[in-house]
Design a protein around this nucleic acid. Structure first.
Lengths: 256, 256
DNA sequence: CGATGTGTTGACCGGGTTCAAACAATGTGG
DNA sequence: CCACATTGTTTGAACCCGGTCAACACATCG
């Protein structure tokens, strides 16, 4: 299992921020309202709620499916992926949760967690008991609103992906996926060169509704177009030289 | 504090080429339970919140995109569809909201409504000001939880549809769609014969990520298999003789 | 009546799946 | 250290589902 290898550099931020500036500096670091809002709500939580901090490493579980729902998890930094198990033993990628995202909303409807969640990278997770959140919400309305905004955002993203699957051909779909990650990196005030996707082609394809072969082929085509630049380090390491070009490619639905 | 030891249970990996797992159609739909919960939360609202009742007819707007977000809408009975406008003027079906569903969550993230919503049929809509909901939530925690459950449910449905688009072929996709409506009818304690879909083939296809021609063809194939029985009244009126057979068809991903 | 919107069906073609082979990266045990 | 297995990635070739274009049926409505 490749995730289980030990991190030599415990702080992924430094690795990603490595500077060898042959790529153009990104158009606008876009510190963004999102990051600001994320900070605000985390400050609210820190002030008004008891929670536990956990530092997890790639592959460690955040929550397990079929356990009773009681706590919500906030990704303070790092990345988490959620999987739903199918009857035949295979599992499907349900979603990705990055810095500022919450994990565990899906348990509220049925009373038990609907999916397994794993850290994809060294991550810090804040876990809050839902009952205490409700309790604190009575005193701090801003906290409640922050929670709702997070839920609303997750809903909107889910819907956008559904529409992307319904409308975009394979290449544009992968490009859109990469655009999301680039976006996230830029929100963290990092650069979009040296992206390291800790995902197999099969997992990407599973999420995007295509086979691993098609993912591989689409990657090759995007590289041919110069939209991604593979690193010599391996096929999971690459740079995104021009995020705007990627956006344009998605908007054109891959007609280029 | 830092949990440096490795996790004993490695995360399950996807099999090679695995996107052949099936997504689960809601374990034990619990026909009565949802309706019960729906009734409960509506009782809570009726008792603790001021709201406006509107009876709308097919085509009437519930909310408009780009207007400031201030109110949430609860479908007391009837059906609502939401549309998002694309840059080129075309619009995409964002979702359907039936009895007990809420409309308007998507406005919380950006502060303005993200989509247009129209009644698909004669419907009663309860509209609540979000600020008042927050206010009342401080006194009535059950109300807040009901809201969260509704949001969680919508998120889960959105995700399930995304997975359906990613995994199911056209016929099974349409079957799954019909299964949802049949389900809803049964929740309302009605029968699943004489379904009347107030949707064009193009709208269905738009939602399901396929062309109207494919929708038509899939309908014909389902009718040939006896999974739906068209009424003489027109091609939008039909019966679903055996919902279980429909479920089985979806689970088999259309291999029948 | 023609006009318009909607639904159905056929023929054709292309993007993506499937099957298959080979390669690369990594780990394991002798 | 190498031989070997394992897992992940790439690429090729053939097939097929679903998109595209087109013609036609059927309804409602002016």
């Amino acid at each position: 299992m490749m995730e289980l290898q030990r991190q030599q550099t415990p702080e992924p931020r430094l690795r990603n921020g490595a500077f060898n500036g042959q790529f153009q500096p990104l158009p606008a670091p876009a510190p963004g309202k999102l990051l600001e809002r994320c900070r605000e709500s985390q400050a609210l939580i820190e002030r008004h709620l008891p929670f536990t901090r956990r530092v997890l490493h790639a592959g460690n579980p955040v929550q397990s499916a079929r356990t009773p729902f009681s706590t919500l998890h906030l990704v303070h930094f790092g990345a988490v992926k959620t999987l739903v198990a199918a009857a035949d033993g295979s599992s499907h990628v349900a979603g990705f949760h990055l810095k500022g995202d919450w994990v565990g909303f899906d348990g509220m409807i049925s009373g038990e967690c609907a999916c397994d969640a794993y850290a994809m990278d060294t991550s810090e997770i804040w876990s809050l008991r839902y009952a205490l959140v409700l309790q604190a919400a009575a005193q701090v309305p801003g906290l409640l609103h922050a929670l709702h905004v997070a839920m609303s955002g997750q809903m909107a993203r889910e819907r956008e992906w559904r529409m992307a699957l319904a409308t975009l051909p394979a290449d544009a779909r992968l490009a859109d996926f990469l655009r999301c990650w680039a976006h996230w990196l830029m929100q963290r005030e990092l650069r979009a060169d040296h992206v390291t996707l800790r995902l197999t082609r099969a997992e990407i394809g599973n999420y995007l509704g295509m086979t691993l072969e098609t993912v591989s082929r689409s990657f090759s085509r995007l590289a041919l177009l110069g939209l991604v630049a593979f690193d010599s380090k391996g096929r999971r390491n690459f740079a995104i030289p021009d995020v705007q070009a990627l956006v344009a490619f998605v908007d054109a639905r891959g007609d280029s």
